[in-house]
């Protein structure tokens, strides 16, 4: 049982090391892109170095996803408490309507409401990211069979003890899935955020599109794809820690 998990972490570490090496050697990029696109003079986006773009992107995702997690999980837990039972249906309904709305639309709506810059993008990512986290937290807690909680109370656990010792550990896997989905969406949507002036890897892509420079596009797109895949693997590996049957 332990071996495949170990293997997954190992693969992740190797991929991560590879990613770091590629990102930090900008002259490799230059040579590779020159080789691929001989007609293009400037192959490296001049305004912001790649490392800095990646840093901005990470900052954007970490702030918004961080906010999402620290509010979304407690929110999901709160609405599953017995005192909130009446509101659960309508919240589920709102969340599912919200998830039907495309993330770009939410990002676009942020501009008329909040204007341009970093803050509107962070707010949009945060709000849209909440949906999968809240939804999965609710689903995770509701997936616990009633008799398991029953025996927890029957053994004399208080509500808090049952929450922290039983409910949260047992719904952890689904909560992690929600967080993974949310973070992956945020990494993707943050790229579009460059248009609104939030910086990040999207800046090179947008510049490339505007100036018809494929090399710039590649400079933004390849690290972004890598980042998303690495993040996805990372959270999947964490999820598998919380699988208790089999």
């Amino acid at each position: 049982m332990k071996n495949p998990k170990l293997k997954n972490w190992l693969i992740l570490i190797i991929l991560f090391a590879f990613f770091i090496v590629i990102i930090s050697n900008i002259d490799w990029w230059q040579r590779a892109l020159h080789f691929l696109f001989r007609d293009i003079e400037n192959v490296i986006y001049p305004r912001v170095p790649l490392i800095a773009m990646l840093g901005e992107h990470l900052k954007l995702v970490i702030i918004s996803s961080g906010l999402t997690i620290i509010t979304g999980v407690p929110l999901g837990i709160w609405v599953t408490r017995s005192s909130m039972r009446d509101f659960l249906d309508i919240i589920n309904n709102l969340v599912s309507i919200g998830q039907t709305i495309p993330p770009v639309a939410v990002l676009a709506l942020a501009v008329p409401v909040f204007g341009f810059g970093l803050i509107p993008v962070v707010l949009a990512l945060f709000l849209y990211g909440l949906l999968p986290v809240v939804r999965n937290t609710i689903a995770g807690i509701q997936s616990i069979p009633e008799f398991v909680l029953d025996s927890a109370y029957g053994l004399g656990m208080s509500k808090m003890q049952a929450l922290f010792k039983i409910e949260i550990p047992l719904s952890a896997r689904l909560i992690m899935t929600g967080i993974r989905i949310s973070v992956i969406i945020n990494i993707g949507t943050a790229m579009i955020g460059a248009i609104i002036g939030a910086g990040g890897l999207g800046s090179a892509v947008i510049a490339g599109l505007v100036q018809d420079n494929v090399a710039y596009i590649m400079e933004g797109v390849v690290p972004a794809a890598f980042l998303a895949i690495l993040t996805d693997r990372f959270f999947s590996n964490i999820e598998s820690i919380f699988v208790y049957n089999q």
Binding site: I187, V205, A225
Partner: peptide, 16 residues
Amino acid sequence: ISQTIPSLALFGLLIA
């Protein structure tokens, strides 16, 4: 994997 890659990135990857 293809679902994981950001939309703009996938569009971009196909451009080259």
